[in-house]
Design a protein around this nucleic acid. Sequence first.
DNA 1: TTGACATATAAGCATATTTTTATATAATGA
DNA 2: TCATTATATAAAAATATGCTTATATGTCAA
Lengths: 119, 119
Amino acid sequence: MKTIPEVPIETTAPVLKLLGDKTRLTMTALLLERECCVCEFTDIFNMSQPSISQHLRKLRDAGVVLETRRGQWVFYALNTDHDMYPLIESILYRMPSQKEKLDELEKNGNHVVWCDTSR
Amino acid sequence: MKTIPEVPIETTAPVLKLLGDKTRLTMTALLLERECCVCEFTDIFNMSQPSISQHLRKLRDAGVVLETRRGQWVFYALNTDHDMYPLIESILYRMPSQKEKLDELEKNGNHVVWCDTSR
DNA sequence: TTGACATATAAGCATATTTTTATATAATGA
DNA sequence: TCATTATATAAAAATATGCTTATATGTCAA
């Protein structure tokens, strides 16, 4: 039998606060589709690049997302091992998919795909 | 087949922000056990009565809780008809029960029970 | 009607959050 | 090395949030 692990209020509240921002909530919803790099977020949101970086930093500091540098790009992905991931996932599942935003990005040729050419 | 109804990001984010405050999150967790009146909250939280009232007002303005006056007391209850109630419930189910706090309240004789004596 | 109790509202203050602008760091390719 | 692109950080400004004190409103009971 599978039980839902309990997480104390002190841990839960900060995560909800983090996702209580429309930009960050949309970011995590996008990351549910696939990992994204910073420039993709700046393309999607009508917002300055530093603002995007600062939102991502909050998500990273909380451990909600993981970052990986690939060449000059930095990619962000959901941290599915996070204690709060089950909660985060259950929140995201109740929201409409953000896939279209990514589809449009790719249609406009702004999808960053990493190919290591150094080998 | 039962599907989870989707709620847009614009609606979801403000509710998460609301529950992202430790006091309000604890309040809703308490209300999951039973309805409470304002003076019970002021007993439980180490906080002034106006502060409690202001948190409750935010929850009420968002439709998350409903208020009912009974005599000189005002009782608050979770609004289980709210569009976001399923999400709220799923968040609360992942947190430890706040029942002990209410038990202690009752042990100390601070549980307000409404009996209509006007009939 | 008056006093006591419960709750709400208003105003002020301190702190936190978000955004912008400017600048720094990092990687790439000519 | 140098210019370009991508990203991060710092500082400052604007705004929002939460708390306290003071006061107002509402209800009841004497």
